[in-house]
Amino acid sequence: MTEPRVCVLRAAGVNCNEETAFAFERAGAEVREIHVNQLLESPKLLGEFGAVAIPGGFSYGDDIAAGRILALEIDETLGEAFRSLVERGGLVIGICNGFQVLIKSGLLPGPSPDGPPIRATLRDNASHRYEDRWVRLRPDPSLCLFLNDDDELELPAAHAEGRFTVADESDLERLASDRRVALRYLGPEPGPAPYPFNPNGSAGDVAAIVDATGQVLGMMPHPERALFPWQHPRWTRERGRRTQGDGARIFENAVRHLRA
């Protein structure tokens, strides 16, 4: 059996490509890192892959707004190639800057089968600062194919523009009722998560969403930085508690889905 093939997208300023590629390889995928310039020249290249990952970083410096320019390139030139990948059952994951790219390109939230599009974006953190901190996350009951249980995860979040924002409260309600909220930040008590548990002021504590197929996932936290026990910030207090980091599950589930 040939291993599932994953394209990890590179672009000027993308900087989590190596660890994202490593995470997929570790989960059993065959990975190629491809520069967006090459893809813009021949969008058909995407046809060779079962999944695309848009890694974290600062594509084009996050000039104007985080992910904006790469999103425009995808929307203008690669939209068809992405849509056809999804139509044939492929997966797309955007992590951090990748999520910002997906949401600004319109691939997320993406079309809603029964109703007008959900209007959402990611904007500057409520703290108005870049912040790197680990967060607790709870999977929502969702269509997301990268998550298959409701076990909590702990992952690092590191960004300046991760505040999930909807145009109207009803957009958030629809997203939840359509089972498209993949992960929410989790506070110490039941109910809404206060800062810094919700690190950026996201509406509804939303940390990750999927499109209507569950195949396109955008998430602010970084699963590729949580593969080994010793990457956890408290591992010296909890020696022996983990055999691997919580992020590994996301990549393993993706590869398992692609194999099926």
Binding site: E19, Y130, A158, Q231, P233, R234
Partner: peptide, 22 residues
């Protein structure tokens, strides 16, 4: 420290902030 990405490249194992509440 929180404003610096001290974890990119995924190799940071003893971080600049440590302990029960990091």
């Amino acid at each position: 420290i929180r404003q610096y990405d001290h974890e990119v490249q995924a190799g940071s194992c003893i971080k600049p902030l440590v302990g029960a509440r990091s």
